[in-house]
């Protein structure tokens, strides 16, 4: 994440943003001309340098700033340590990116008809937002909050400051501009846990490292011959995932 120096990146985005507008106009008359693409190609390698694994997977939903935020947030929620992998190395950023780009993120199985009202907590999710919109707005909100309280973007803060902000968001103490802090945090944490503990097929739990850490043997479970034998004993196994059978 060190390479994502926010000032550089923001400067870069200004250039590219401007260029894109020009490129867009040019493309309308001259699709695919070299002139339209030059600024992008020129800046690309420098911006992406050092982020090899991310470049391999790519972002289907997040813009680079959001991706940097998400990785910093994941590193705060589940840091790498002696106990086991961190959420970043487990691939949770890719997991969340894919979920938000896909059906879940776009509001599948979510009733989104109005009128809308806040309601009581026991009435559940009542936002006029898809999960993708909710997460995106919340990322901007938390970053604005970090700037206001700590004068930096969230991803540029030291780990202790990030943890302090996440705690304020978690407990609802942080006043965010658009979304309710606690509700946003719950959704982000749930996505993090899904990626971390889910089947590697979805992009998280890379190499089944999390299943190895907790001792979950994965799939398929065929225990009729062993369930009695391993009562009150550790069960030796090597985890398998759906992906392993693909």
């Amino acid at each position: 994440m060190q390479e994502d120096k926010s000032v550089d990146r923001r400067g870069f985005l200004k250039v590219v943003g401007g260029a894109s507008a020009v490129a867009g106009a040019a493309a309308a008359t001259q699709p695919g001309t070299a002139a339209a693409q030059t600024p992008m190609q020129h800046n690309m390698p420098a911006a992406a340098a050092g982020a090899a694994s991310d470049r391999l997977s790519g972002w289907a939903f997040f813009n680079p700033d959001e991706a940097a935020f998400v990785k910093a947030a994941l590193d705060t929620l589940i840091p790498a340590d002696a106990t086991g992998p961190g959420a970043v190395e487990a691939g949770c950023a890719t997991y969340i990116d894919r979920q938000l780009a896909g059906a879940y993120g776009r509001g599948a199985r979510l009733y989104l008809q109005g009128p809308f009202a806040q309601g009581a907590p026991q009435q559940g999710y009542q936002l006029p937002l898809t999960p993708a919109e909710h997460i995106r707005i919340g990322i901007a909100d938390v970053n604005a909050y970090a700037r206001k309280t700590k004068q930096k973007l969230f991803q540029d803060l030291a780990p202790a400051d990030r943890a302090a902000i996440m705690t304020e968001v978690d407990t609802g103490k942080a006043e965010l501009a658009n979304v309710a802090a606690g509700g946003w945090f719950n959704m982000f944490l749930a996505l993090t846990m899904e990626g971390y503990f889910g089947d590697p097929m979805y992009g998280g739990n890379k190499d089944k490292a999390v299943w190895k850490m907790i001792g979950f043997p994965g799939v398929p479970g065929m225990y009729s011959e062993v369930i009695e034998q391993y009562r009150n004993k550790p069960y030796p196994h090597t985890p398998k995932s759906i992906q392993d059978f693909a």
């Binding site: 199985r109 979510l110 009733y111 989104l112 008809q113 009202a117 309601g119 009581a120 009435q123 559940g124 999710y125 009542q126």
Partner: peptide, 10 residues
């Protein structure tokens, strides 16, 4: 209370 939709399964 005013009833609100169960927007997600739960």
């Amino acid at each position: 209370q005013t009833a609100l939709p169960m927007r997600q399964l739960g």
